[in-house]
Structures are given as C-alpha cells and as structure tokens.
Write a protein that binds this DNA or RNA. Sequence first.
DNA 1: TAATATATTGAACATTGTTCATAATCAACC
DNA 2: GGTTGATTATGAACAATGTTCAATATATTA
Lengths: 211, 211
Amino acid sequence: MARRSDHNRGELHDIALSAARKIALTEGLKGLTARKVADEIGYSPGTLYNVFGDMDDLIIQLIAQTLDELYIYLASVRGEGNPIDDLKLILEKYIKYLEGHRNLWNILFEHQLPNDRSLPDWYTIKLAKLLGIIENALSPIFPSGQEDACANSARVLWASLHGLNSLSEAGKMRTVSAQSFQELAEILIVCFVKGLQQTQKEIDTTMPEVH
Amino acid sequence: MARRSDHNRGELHDIALSAARKIALTEGLKGLTARKVADEIGYSPGTLYNVFGDMDDLIIQLIAQTLDELYIYLASVRGEGNPIDDLKLILEKYIKYLEGHRNLWNILFEHQLPNDRSLPDWYTIKLAKLLGIIENALSPIFPSGQEDACANSARVLWASLHGLNSLSEAGKMRTVSAQSFQELAEILIVCFVKGLQQTQKEIDTTMPEVH
DNA sequence: TAATATATTGAACATTGTTCATAATCAACC
DNA sequence: GGTTGATTATGAACAATGTTCAATATATTA
C-alpha cells in the first residue's frame, strides 16, 4: 500500500507529536514506543521514520514542545523585583504544571541521548528562553556587567530544582519527615538567593564603587 | 546441562556483580544487559535469574555497591569545622571519584525503578550513610535540636549536586562560557551554605537565647 | 491514458528482558 | 558401586523493542 492523501508531511509530524504527548502523559517514557505512536495515529511504524530520524529525534521534539509549553505557562508570572518572592511564585506555577504533567515532564530528565549525539541548536535556544525567566528573577541581585554571573546562577538553580524533582520523584531521597518537593525547593531558593545577595554585599564592601 | 560446582550461590552473586560493574564502567547503563553479564561470567542468561530477581534487582545492587564505595572514598576527608571549606574538599574528592567512574556513577540517576516498585530498605540505609557526610559538614551551622533541618539541607545539597552533574553530563545546560561542573557546584555550595548561615543569624537576632 | 514519482507499508532483523521444561550433576543412601 | 532424588544450569522460546527496506499502491505529470 502507499500514498494516502490524508495528511501531508507537516500534518503527520504534528499528529505524531500529539499522539506521543498523549501517550507520554499517561504512560511516561517507557510506554512511549514507536509502535504505539504509529497505532495511535493510524499509520504503520515505518511511516514514523519518514517524518522523524528515529525515536530519539521524536522524543527530543516532544521535550522541546514541553519546554515551550512550560515557558508560556511561567511567562505569565508577574514578579515585583524581589528575587526570593518572585522565584517562589515561579516555583508555585512550576509545581502546578508538574502536577498536571508528571509523566511528560519526567521524560525531560529520564531521556538520555547516546553519548555520540548532541542536542540540536533549536533545543538549546528553547532552553535558554526558559532559563531567561529565572535570570530575570535573579537580575536585581547583580550589577550591570555581571550578566554572565547571573546566567550561571540561573543555571545552577535550574539544575538544582531538576535534581530535587528527579530524586524525590524516584523515591531516592527519603527525607526525615517526608518533606515535599515544594518544601525542599523553597529551602533551596531561599538559601541560594540569600547566599547570592550576601556575596554581592561582600563584594560591595571590599571593593567600593569608584565614582 | 546443569549443576556445576564452580561457584555456589553467593560466589555467583559476587562475580556477577563484578562483571556488571566492569561492563558498567566502560559501557554505562545501556550496555549493561543480562546476556553480556552472563557471557562475562561464563554462565547462561537464565542463571542470572536464579541469583537476581530481575535486571532491576541486579542494577539496584550495583548502585548500592557504588554508594558504599563512594562513602569509603569520601569518609577519608578530614574537615576542620568550616562548612564551606569542608564541603569544597568533599566536592573535590567527589569529582575525583566521578572522573574515574563516570559511566558507573551515571547509572545512579539514569536508572529508574518502575512506578509500582520502591527501593529496598538496605538501599535507603546506605544512602543515609552517605548523606551523613554532608550532614556532618553542615552541622556547625545548626544549633542542637535542629538535626532535622540539617538533614533536610544536606538532602537539598545532595540532590542539587545530582542535578548539576546530571544536566551538565547530558549537555542540557550549555553554559555561557562553558563552565565546568566543578565551577557551578562551587557556586552552589558557597551560596547555599552562606544562605543557611545567614538564615541562622536572622533567627538568632529575632529570637535571642533565653538564659 | 500511460509513465513517472513518491508515500506507505509490513515483513524482517537484531536486540532486549524473562521464563521454564529439560537435562546434567551432586549428595545421600542402600 | 549403583540407584535414587534433589538441585541447578541451560538455552530454546516468547513477546516486545527500534529500525530498515523492497515491494506496492496511489498521485501527479506528460
């Protein structure tokens, strides 16, 4: 058989990703197989390989879509210029997103590209956009000219939240009294940001501004 | 064929784990298959299932062994009671271990137990022992009676380091100017600990000791 | 209408984890 | 030593995975 005019290439790409998203939401990474996606869209497994290079490709695109989605979700947060408060608001929204998309979101850190392959540029760009939200919240701490330091701090915070979420999700962090992810994340945010502020204060004292 | 008296149950268990470790060191989680382990020890795949419940079981035991190994490695660090300095020493040793055991160590966070299974108690105990090292380094910050807060902070730090390592390993954190894991981890440690200390100071000021 | 291009297929391959009847060996007893 | 019985390793077999590709059915063009 061949050549149905049900969908063109682009449409196929989109409905396949939608199907993948649907499966991922309920079954997670392990349930996300080529055959299931193919079944879901009413095409054969082989067809997927005309649209995606391989399953890793499809998964990366699904993750990228998810990054976009979270970005839109978090971009609605209106901060007031206080890093700790603003980050707590962002965290709250982040957690709300997580709760509705657990299995989908976990794919973000469960999936690992083979060592010999690296992430495409458009992926890195989407990620940078999301990190921009954290950078923005942290920016009041850093004087102009220290944008790199701010970006690094945002990445540290981002990765740390990942770690917290990942380990508590996997049950690899049985805490003293069953602390929730949110509680631990707030400890992280409060202490980390306070530390950043303290560091800046120390720099100001040691090297006073030149007028 | 059957019943060779080459090895008893316990020996089989040990040489299988050794073989798994060897494979894991060079090929990581994806290369760690039942057939490869069986080949390596000169037995058939089926034999593995007389010794381990399944591959997840074997992998959990491999991870536990690795936790033990890292504990012994890190326990040799002699701190001086300054949390930041001590944690930096621990970090240095941790990184040294990582460098020699990259693929093995990554299994720790790459591997995910199916949702319906939870980690055995002896695993949690080994993990707690390792966390004790961080708790110990943090302990000067906390007054007695706040052991739980100390334990929570240690867990936050541990998970955060995981996140940093995991994302930088996966190339999912392309930093501004190619910061190394060590640089980012030091930012985390310094800021987080400063924040903890600052928080304690604030508590002391607000609620002065009762004599 | 005929020829050409192309999209879809699904059977096929190599690998996975895992199971289990079979067979080989050891231990005990006569 | 021989027979029996329990135990243990086996490897073929199964289902499921990602992936490939010759065959084929349909659109498009001439």
